[in-house]
Computed example of a mutant assay.
Amino acid sequence: MKRRTSFKKNAGAALALAFLSLTISCSDDNMPNVEPQQKTIAAIVSDNSSYSLLKSAVVKADLAETLSGTGPFTVFAPNNEAFMASGITQEAINSMAAADLKDLLLYHTLTSKVTAANVPAGPNAEVTSANGDKLYLTKDSRGVFVNGWKVTSADMAASNGVIHAVERVLMPPKGTIVQMAQANANLTYLVAAVLRASQGSTNVAQVLSAEGNLTVFAPSNQAFIDAGFPTIASIQSADPDTLASILTYHVLAARAFSSDLSNGQSLTTVNGGTLMVALGSQATVKGNGNEMPSVITSFNMLATNGVIHLIDRVLLP
């Protein structure tokens, strides 16, 4: 009798356990799938140590509240490595005026949600950023590019939009090609050459200031010195038409970011000549009259009427 009673107790317990398991299982099946709540763009940047420089800039620019708002926004976000590669340190951020930082960060922002799949193919499709300046987007088999710089990680979802990591800080244009050259201490020889060339039959300064889309491969001061112009005075005494022929050989009648250049590409300049591009451990461009190619030392300096690439050798037709 004791054995039978024990058997009944065990059977009853097993039946109760099975019923409880079935009840829980049915209850779980009926529960809705609740997605974890996404963070805002500001919170994602704040919580990621790789974006500490961007966070510092956002805080100083007083944009944390904006990027925590409803949006939606798209932010092209440079991480710490991108800031450093662009020459912008924490000290540089500290020294910038809050208004300038705000303008810079809003240039990285769109006032709509644009995932990588919805980026226009372009090339260089023009969109307006939150600060009112233009960004140029390209999507192809290599990925997404903004002003020539690659998106290194796309579609980080936020509750108020999306973040795309980009490999450099995007610098808004600060003037025409001529104005940007005048503001660059490493291009004083080029500016002198443009002014001297404009005294001949071709007004090169007017060409480089005109509205439109241009690309200029801009030789550094040292490049002019190496080409036989040891001083600015030597440039000012050169034949204007000879200088004009050389300078217009450095200009393309289209905007060509680094993302638009390919290995072995032939480029036609505004004076009718051709340049040859080579992409390897370094990016180079070579003129027909050059024994050695010129190294492109700095890319994608955006102007209101085009883009500038710095080079270390004067290109010869």
Rank of each mutant, 00 (worst) to 15 (best):
P120C: 12
S234F: 04
E167F: 02
T188C: 10
K174A: 06
L135F: 09
S234N: 14
V119N: 00
A205R: 05
T231S: 15
A117Q: 13
V151A: 09
A218H: 04
T152D: 05
T152C: 07
A193Y: 01
K134F: 12
A158I: 05
G122K: 11
I225T: 14
A223V: 01
L110T: 08
V166A: 11
Q236A: 11
S245G: 15
P240A: 12
Y189A: 06
P173W: 03
N213R: 12
I232N: 09
L208Y: 01
I163H: 04
I232F: 11
F229P: 00
N184L: 06
G200R: 08
A223D: 04
R142L: 09
T128E: 12
T242W: 07
A205E: 14
K174I: 00
S198F: 01
E126D: 14
N160Y: 08
W149I: 05
K139H: 11
A238H: 00
V191T: 12
N124L: 09
M180T: 13
N160F: 03
A165R: 10
S159T: 13
A154G: 03
P240L: 13
G122H: 11
N203M: 10
V166G: 05
A130M: 06
A165D: 07
A210V: 05
I225F: 11
V216D: 02
T111A: 13
F229T: 06
N186Q: 14
T215M: 05
F217V: 03
F145W: 14
K139Y: 07
V114P: 05
Y107P: 02
W149K: 12
T109E: 01
Q206S: 15
I163L: 13
L195W: 00
V119Y: 00
K174M: 05
E211R: 07
W149C: 04
F229G: 02
N131H: 07
V204A: 00
Q206E: 15
V151L: 04
Y107S: 04
A238N: 00
K113D: 11
A154M: 07
M171D: 07
Q206C: 08
Y189R: 03
L187Y: 07
G200L: 03
T109K: 00
L190G: 06
S112G: 08
L170P: 11
L135T: 09
A130F: 03
A238G: 03
V207T: 13
S209T: 13
N221Y: 12
K139I: 10
T109A: 13
V162A: 03
F229V: 09
A197D: 05
L214Q: 01
G200D: 01
L135C: 09
A185Y: 10
Q182E: 14
T115D: 11
F224T: 02
T231K: 09
G143H: 07
T109R: 00
T111M: 10
P120T: 12
P240C: 14
S237D: 08
A158Q: 02
